[in-house]
Amino acid sequence: MFNNLLFTAAAENVKEMSIGDAAITAVFGYSVVFAGLVILMILLYCTGAYFKSKDAKEKAAADAAKAAAQKAAPAEKSPEAKTELPLAPGSAGHVKLFDVPDKEAAMIMAIVADKMQKPLNELHFISIKEVK
């Protein structure tokens, strides 16, 4: 009895509802949550598409600028040509990186050298690839 008294006294705006009303409220509420998040999803797709196209444009502009610079200075050696230079004595060689940032590649090479107890310049890394 005491519990009932407390439960009714404490809630000031208690709304009693029928099972039918509850079912309608539940279905409507779930639909509102879905609708809200679907609209938010559309907004995110729109902003995502905008930023993707912006990035693509910036990348294209940067590539075009790079190509123009290479045309304007044909005498200057291309970066590819530079990499063909003979290696310095003791160099670890050219490493092909696939989806691995330079810093991580350097870290991996250092760890491998450490584990093998060999100086880094005595090792020849051919390529480093991220396994997905």
Binding site: K15, E16, A22
Partner: peptide
């Protein structure tokens, strides 16, 4: 609601 709670509860 089916178990007798009010809407708020």
């Amino acid at each position: 609601v089916c178990l007798g709670f009010s809407g708020n509860q």
